[in-house]
């Protein structure tokens, strides 16, 4: 409403026009599509995780070790009365394992929790700042895109391939005594 009318009828008419115009105009799309990410760190390496690919972020959950499991299996943890396997992201990604990773995310696509050392924060970045991975072919299996912003530069984890790796661990590993 740009001009305040001097009488009530004029003002009401203007309000009506504004209201009608609001419906008549096409829906304006956000000109800059964005993506929400979690910024984390594994050892010294920064990574990002797509927020849409996880259902929760937890800190300080107790992880119960399970004997006979794969080295990358940190153990199991309880979430709302359900037991989930917890895998050490560092080991899955080929880094040295963390002593006791404090943070956990639960994947949306499978009942699996992934543990890591440091949670840096949440990012909302324009899609244009996300580039397909080309420079670091060695990481292509689990990081297919890279996010480059003023504050953060790092690969985005490809959660489906990480979940596939955990699935492979569950089916390929043979316990020593069986």
């Amino acid at each position: 409403m740009s001009v305040a009318g001097s009488n009530v009828a004029e003002r009401a008419a203007e309000l009506r026009r504004d209201f009608d115009r609001g419906f008549a105009e096409p829906i304006r799309l956000d000109p800059v599509a964005t993506e929400d990410l979690l910024a984390i760190r594994i050892g010294a390496q920064p990574y990002a995780i797509r927020l849409a690919e996880i259902t929760g972020l937890f800190a300080g959950r107790k992880i119960t070790r399970v004997p006979g499991g794969h080295a990358a299996l940190s153990g199991i943890a309880g979430f709302r009365g359900t037991l989930l396997p917890v895998y050490d992201l560092a080991l899955l990604l080929g880094h040295a394992g963390a002593q006791a990773p404090r943070w956990l995310v639960i994947a949306a696509a499978a009942p699996v929790a992934l543990a890591f050392d440091t949670f840096e924060g949440q990012l909302r970045v324009p899609r244009t700042d996300i580039l397909p991975q080309t420079a670091r072919e060695d990481m292509s299996a689990h990081a297919r895109d890279v996010v480059r912003t003023k504050d953060f530069v790092g690969p985005i984890m490809h959660l489906p391939s990480i979940l596939n790796a955990t699935k492979a661990l569950r089916t390929a590993a043979v316990p020593a005594e069986e």
Binding site: K62, G68, A77, G81, P111, R170, T171, P175
Partner: peptide, 22 residues
Amino acid sequence: LPERLIASSIVVGASLDVEGNP
């Protein structure tokens, strides 16, 4: 235990303690 989790045969399952930890 969670589905298809490989574990030693000495483990039959898990219970949750009062804090919800296994």
